[in-house]
Simulated assay, not measured.
Amino acid sequence: MQMRAATYHKSGEASDVLSIIQCEKPEPGPGQVLVRVSFSAVNPSDVKTRSGKTPRPIDDFQIPHMDGCGRIVAVGPGVHEGRIGQRVWLWLAALGSRWGTAAEYTLVPANQAVALPDSASDELGACLGIPAMTAHECLLHAGPVTHKKVLIAGGAGAVGHFAIELARWAGATVIATVSTPDKAKLAQQAGADFVVNYRDDDVADQITAFTNGVDIFVEVAIVDNWNIDLAVAAPGASIATYATDGRELSIPIRECMAAGLGLRFFLLYTHSRSALSLAAQSITDALAEQALTPLPHLTFPLDDIALAHEAVENGESRKVLLDLRDSDT
Results as ranks from 00 to 15, higher is better:
D193C: 09
N225G: 06
Q281I: 00
E27D: 10
L107Y: 08
G70E: 07
H297E: 01
A308C: 05
A74G: 01
I164L: 12
G154S: 05
T7H: 00
A94D: 13
A5M: 01
G68M: 03
A258S: 08
M66C: 14
L287Y: 09
N227M: 03
R273T: 15
R50L: 13
K25E: 07
V47T: 10
S119G: 09
K149D: 04
L276P: 11
E165P: 06
V73E: 09
G68C: 02
L124W: 08
R318S: 13
Q206M: 09
T241K: 01
L116Q: 01
V17W: 02
I164R: 06
P144D: 14
A120K: 06
S327H: 03
M1W: 05
A156D: 01
A103R: 02
I253T: 12
V73M: 00
V73L: 00
A94L: 01
D201Q: 15
V47S: 06
D323Q: 10
S282V: 04
C138Q: 03
F265N: 07
P235L: 02
I20M: 04
A209L: 08
L18V: 01
T54M: 10
A142T: 01
G70A: 07
V73G: 00
F300R: 04
F300K: 04
A291V: 07
I58P: 03
D122H: 14
I283P: 01
W89D: 08
E219F: 05
S119W: 00
T284I: 05
T134M: 04
A288I: 11
P144A: 12
E13Q: 15
Q62C: 12
Q188Y: 00
H271D: 09
A170K: 14
D118E: 15
T49E: 11
R273Y: 09
A209S: 15
